[in-house]
């Protein structure tokens, strides 16, 4: 009799622990499909940085404390991934409605040689006058990129008249209100999913 009860209790305990381990949100009900995007838990501490914004003024990431910042690393001569992402940022902003005031949308150039503040200003404003474009010297961009896990490099091809193209990580990064890296989205993540993940940080 006792052994039987002991085994039952042990199984229940193990079961409860297993369930608790599988789903941090609670063991009741079916597991919801997780939203696209990676939520860093714990958040990754990243350094503050200073770059030049599209108005030619110094800009620090810490200037955005209190807001969630969505960042994308690209360059203005990129005909595909970069404008597509900024167009998606526009959709995220629209989906956030009034909450958009709590979010900053930032485009960081990995091509400081060609992307001057003036070039960036025309570029980001073509999408939304509130978007922020950042540029700077390559050494600073390198350090920032390393913090985020962003790869970029100039590539030249003999068969191409372009002096160089820039391969670069196409992910979107979310920095929380305390300036820590919290979210990473693959290129092409649905704007609705990004908006939902951002809202969860409020």
């Amino acid at each position: 009799m006792r052994r039987w009860m002991f085994l039952l209790l042990a199984s229940l305990l193990i079961g409860a622990l297993a369930l608790a381990g599988c789903d941090s949100g609670g063991a009741s009900g079916p597991t919801p499909t997780p939203l696209p995007g990676t939520l860093l838990d714990p958040p990754r501490e990243i350094g503050d940085f200073t770059l030049t914004d599209h108005t030619g003024q110094p800009f620090r990431l810490s200037d955005l404390r209190g807001k969630v910042a969505l960042l994308f690393f690209g360059y203005t001569n990129c005909p595909d991934v970069c404008p597509t992402t900024l167009a998606e940022f526009k959709r995220v902003k629209a989906l956030l409605g009034e909450d958009a005031a709590r979010v900053a949308f930032v485009f960081v150039s990995v091509d400081g040689a060609r992307d001057t503040p003036e070039q960036l200003a025309a570029y980001v404003r073509a999408f939304d006058p509130e978007f922020i474009g950042l540029t700077g010297d390559d050494a600073t961009i390198r350090t920032i990129a390393r913090d985020y896990g962003v790869f970029y490099q100039r590539v030249s091809y003999e068969e191409s008249a372009a002096s160089y193209l820039v391969d670069h990580t196409a992910s979107t990064f979310g920095v929380d209100q305390e300036g820590r890296l919290r979210l990473i989205f693959s290129y092409g993540t649905e704007p609705a999913a990004i908006a939902a993940r951002v809202r969860a940080l409020f």
Partner: peptide, 12 residues
């Protein structure tokens, strides 16, 4: 092309 490493590459 975008690889699994999420790096976008363009080539002629």
């Amino acid at each position: 092309t975008i690889g699994e490493d999420q790096v976008m590459r363009m080539r002629p």
